[in-house]
Simulated assay, not measured.
Amino acid sequence: MQNWTMAAAGEFDLDAYFARIEFTGDCAPTLDTLTSIAYCHALAIPFENLYPFLGQSVSLDLSALQRKLVDHRRGGWCFEHNLLLREALLALGYEVTALAARVLWGGPPDRITPRSHMLLRVGVPDDPQPYLVDVGFGGMTPTSALLFSRGVEQTTPHEPFRVGDIDGDFTVEALVGDAWVTLYRFDLTPQYPVDYEAANWYLSTHPSSHFVNGLTAARPAADRRYALNNRRLNVHHLDGTSERHVLGSADELIECLRRDFHIELDNPDPLRGAFDRIPND
């Protein structure tokens, strides 16, 4: 287990987290519990970048994560999701190692990109096999724990996934339609808070960051995935069909965030004022 923790004794509110993700199952640190928590978290807490798009800072402090994702029922991106989940898993007795990945989504698998994504390697007591858990990869977030076993197609409540290999690194791949797509590559080097702080600051403030210049949100439901890319809403059903919509006004966008992503904005006025900045592509 890594020798750092974000939470002091009693600081992390596990009960509030469980209520937020509507998890009511057994809390014993088993594979079934791990898989259930990953599924419930992914469906309940959306991926979204409203803070950086609106020029607000993204804090990775545990109290800020709980306040935003749990108390205020908002979403966030990979660092926020997986740091919060890490605290819950540690509280339950799992062994958790935080890792960093290079996002490749749709690009060549040998392309070298920054380590801008967070994921977790989780050990289950009395189980020799480690598992990969990631509740923060946007439109293709795995909705189950994955075996660290290269080349094995693994069923999840949504798409099949597999762990692959490239030049000794691990990859995570998803079956999209009839093609395997590499989402990201990573190794097993443990990461610490400073590693995520640097990437988090860059993605949330740099003028060329796509999280600063555009709007994105994603959430899986039991039978579909919702994906918002700027003004385009895509709904991908598990039967292979898709719906595509263009949001023509700020009111449509705010309603879409509420209805499909369960994001209730305390004050929607900043988003209304920024609507014209959202690329219309």
Rank of each mutant, 00 (worst) to 15 (best):
G177M: 08
W180C: 12
R232E: 15
L188W: 08
L14A: 08
V246H: 14
K68D: 13
R219K: 15
D13H: 10
P190L: 01
F47H: 03
S208H: 06
G107R: 14
F161W: 05
G106H: 08
A222K: 03
L54H: 11
L65D: 10
E264G: 09
L65S: 01
I278T: 04
P268R: 04
G164D: 11
L14N: 01
D178F: 03
G107Y: 06
D61G: 13
T216H: 09
H210N: 11
G248H: 15
P270S: 02
E95Q: 15
L175I: 09
L147W: 13
V181I: 15
Q191R: 15
R121S: 12
L89C: 01
G123M: 03
A174G: 02
L34Y: 12
T5E: 14
C256R: 00
P270G: 01
D260A: 01
T141V: 14
H237Y: 15
L50T: 11
A179H: 13
F137R: 00
E153T: 12
V124P: 02
V163Q: 03
G10A: 08
N49P: 10
F23K: 04
L247R: 00
A221G: 15
A217S: 10
D281A: 12
R86E: 03
H117L: 11
T205F: 06
H158Y: 00
H117Y: 10
E48R: 02
L188T: 12
M1Y: 05
L85G: 01
R244I: 08
D195R: 05
